[in-house]
């Protein structure tokens, strides 16, 4: 029994703490994040700029900036391996093969002086024991899978539009059929109709290949469409997490409520939005208590002096808020 549940878990992050340290200051980017994911799930990581979403993903890939980016605590177990304790050489074997990442900006993620086909073939050759010819054949297949004609193998990134470049990046990330895909705002740089194409494609690929996906986004619309689980990140903490239903239909945390109030809806006739007042706290100088207390309309004395724990309010639905835990909200 124990064994089977272990096999289902693809990613288990416990108490991850990441800091960026420079001579001048220390940025508290991730402050005790715990996260578990099962195989084949799409998890949405939602939050605003600077919340720490990308830092979490980069920690899983172990590609934090050298020297400044430091993992100060916690564990990351990926498919049973403790990622943080293995050597860089072993990590290189995992990276691109078992876990890969799609970056936000397709314009800079590709090598401008190598043909798109070769870039994909290179990855395949590196990880699978195969000949040049086989790698090339597989690369053509990957391009076609993401809807790019195989004849364009010899073309360079500048000959592609933004949407097509992002597809190349996706083909590259999926080339070795990874177990886990980290997609960091994969469609933010794209137009809506192109975004619709790319999302549709990602969903189909995810279904056929059974890849687990962490989808990092600030767009709740995309989350509603793509994800089965959601974690809301604020100032380096997960303030609320649960199933899609939990977060969208039984929203609990004041920050999540604020996020929903901030987006203009297509189906309502409201003439005013209900924004969250103020700004995200400075990550070099976070409040002592709840990170959201400076902007929270329900904040009490306790909220600014004590840190609320992450508590389960219903099976799978976790909230980090005193007021919710006391039942006042």
């Amino acid at each position: 029994m124990e064994k089977s549940s272990e096999n289902r878990t693809i990613l288990d992050i416990k108490n991850l703490v990441v800091r960026y340290v420079t001579d001048k200051e220390t940025v508290h980017a991730v402050n005790g994040v715990s996260l578990t994911m099962e195989k084949g799930e799409i998890l949405g990581l939602v939050g605003e700029t600077g919340a720490g979403k990308t830092t979490i993903a980069k920690s899983i890939m172990r590609i934090l900036p050298a020297f400044a980016g430091r993992i100060e605590g916690g564990t990351i177990a990926f498919n049973g391996n403790d990622i943080l304790s293995i050597s860089e050489k072993e990590m290189q074997k995992l990276r691109g093969k078992q876990v890969s990442m799609i970056f936000q900006d397709p314009m800079t993620a590709l090598n401008p002086i190598e043909t798109v086909g070769d870039q994909i073939a290179e990855t395949i050759k590196l990880h699978e024991k195969c000949s040049k010819g086989e790698a090339r054949k597989k690369a053509v297949e990957m391009l076609e899978m993401v809807g790019i004609p195989g004849e364009r193998y010899e073309e360079f990134p500048f000959q592609f539009s933004g949407g097509m470049k992002q597809r190349v990046v996706i083909a590259l990330a999926l080339a070795c059929n990874p177990l886990l895909l980290l997609a960091d705002e994969p469609t933010t740089a794209l137009d809506v109709t192109i975004q619709a194409q790319v999302l549709e494609m990602m969903r189909q690929l995810q279904r056929t290949l059974g890849t687990s996906v962490i989808l990092i986004t600030h767009d709740l619309g995309i989350v509603a469409e793509m994800c089965s689980k959601v974690a809301v990140v604020y100032a380096g903490e997960i303030v609320e997490s649960g199933s899609l239903e939990d977060i969208f239909a039984h929203t609990m945390h004041p920050y999540t409520i604020g996020l929903f109030g901030s987006i203009p809806r297509l189906n309502t006739e409201d003439r005013r939005l209900h924004p969250i007042e103020g700004l995200m706290p400075d990550p070099t100088d976070l409040p002592k208590g709840c990170a959201f207390c400076t902007r929270c309309q329900y904040a009490a004395d306790r909220c600014s002096s004590e840190k609320p724990a992450d508590q389960e309010v219903s099976p799978g639905h976790r909230v980090r808020c005193f007021k919710v835990q006391e039942g006042a909200l």
Partner: peptide, 11 residues
């Protein structure tokens, strides 16, 4: 097509 392409935050 444009309107149908908007992802809506409604489950």
């Amino acid at each position: 097509a444009l309107l149908s392409a908007i992802p809506e935050p409604d489950i």
